[in-house]
C-alpha cells in the first residue's frame, strides 16, 4: 500500500510540470497539452485521497473531471484551428488582434 503522501507529491510534481509547460512554451497546442497534464495531476490527487479514505467520491470527481476536460478540449481545439485558419497563428505571440496600436485596423 502506497502512503497518501507519496501520491500527493507525485501529483504536485505533475501539476507543476504542466504549469511550467503552460508558462514556458509559446505554441498553442503545447499550452493545451500542459493543461492536460495539470488536469491529470488533479485527478491523481482526487483518486489517491478517495482511496485513502476508502470511498468512491474521488472517483466520481475524476469522472466528472474527464467529462469537463473533454468538453473543454473540443472547444479549445476548434479555437486553435480557427486561429491557425484565419491568422496563421501557431504561437501565442501572433494573437495580438486586441492590441490598441494595431496597424492593420479592425480585422
Amino acid at each position: 500500500m502506497i502512503p497518501l503522501n507519496h501520491s500527493l507529491a507525485i501529483a504536485a510534481l505533475l501539476f507543476v510540470l504542466g504549469l511550467a509547460v503552460v508558462l514556458l512554451r509559446r505554441e498553442l497546442l503545447f499550452i493545451l497539452m500542459g493543461l492536460e497534464v495539470m488536469f491529470n495531476g488533479v485527478a491523481l490527487t482526487a483518486i489517491a485521497a478517495g482511496q485513502h479514505w476508502g470511498n468512491a467520491d474521488g472517483q466520481v470527481l475524476t469522472i466528472m473531471l474527464m467529462a469537463v476536460t473533454a468538453a473543454e478540449i473540443v472547444v479549445a481545439l476548434i479555437l486553435i484551428w480557427l486561429a491557425f485558419d484565419r491568422y496563421k497563428a501557431v504561437r501565442v505571440e501572433a494573437l495580438t488582434r486586441l492590441r490598441d496600436d494595431n496597424k492593420e485596423g479592425v480585422p
Partner: peptide, 22 residues
C-alpha cells in the same frame, strides 16, 4: 491505487478519444 474503473476510463477517454482529437 485500487481504482480499476478509472484506469479503464483513463485509457479509453484520455489516451483514446482526446489524444485522437489532438
Amino acid at each position: 491505487l485500487g481504482a480499476p474503473l478509472l484506469a479503464a476510463l483513463q485509457v479509453m477517454l484520455y489516451a483514446g478519444a482526446i489524444m485522437v482529437l489532438f
